[in-house]
């Protein structure tokens, strides 16, 4: 069972190497404020520049909140990030959905395409949340399985 990935693209005016650097290295400057998961607004968002690196936000007090990790680091064309934020918008180390961002030359600029996939794993995470909230709910587990199949 799988859910169709989310695919979004934009074309930016800078070349791929610059777009890659701005996307990954300055994410805290362009990421929309308030759309983060820490207790306080983010001061910085960090994507460590290597496979296996961390992806996290840091607030003004220096408190860090994990978002996920770097699964593949291939400048200037591609970065693959593990998004470990669940359907309740909380960090969950047991959950990894994938956010792939590619940077392809487009005239003098760059076509940036973001693909968020493995979304069916949110359903599995939702099952865990359900189990934590209310104990075993066979009916709900079944429902999520059915919904995911319908989405597929």
């Amino acid at each position: 069972m799988s859910i169709a990935p989310i695919v979004q693209s934009v074309t930016v005016a800078v070349p791929p190497d610059r777009a890659f650097t701005l996307f990954t290295g300055s994410i805290g400057r362009w990421w929309k404020r308030g759309m983060t998961i820490g207790a306080k607004p983010h001061e910085e968002v960090v994507i460590e520049s290597r496979a296996g690196g961390r992806w996290f936000e840091r607030d003004e007090d220096g408190a860090e909140t994990e978002w996920g990790k770097v699964l593949a680091w291939e400048p200037p064309g591609r970065v693959l990030l593990g998004w470990q934020i669940d359907a309740a918008f909380k960090y969950d180390p047991d959950l990894t959905t994938e956010v792939e961002v590619t940077f392809v030359p487009d005239g003098t600029g760059t076509r940036v395409t973001l693909t968020h996939s493995r979304l069916e794993r949110f359903g599995e995470s939702a099952e865990r949340i359900a189990a934590q909230l209310g104990g075993g709910w066979p009916g709900l587990l079944q429902l999520f399985a059915e919904l995911t199949e319908k989405e597929a």
Binding site: I3, Q8, V12, L22, F23, W30, M35, E151
Partner: peptide, 21 residues
């Protein structure tokens, strides 16, 4: 959930484009 994520990433990429440009 999927609809929500679709809007979420659309907003974020829009913000990235504004910043990069």
């Amino acid at each position: 959930l999927r609809d929500w994520l679709d809007r979420f990433w659309g907003d974020q990429l829009g913000a990235f484009k504004d910043f990069a440009d």
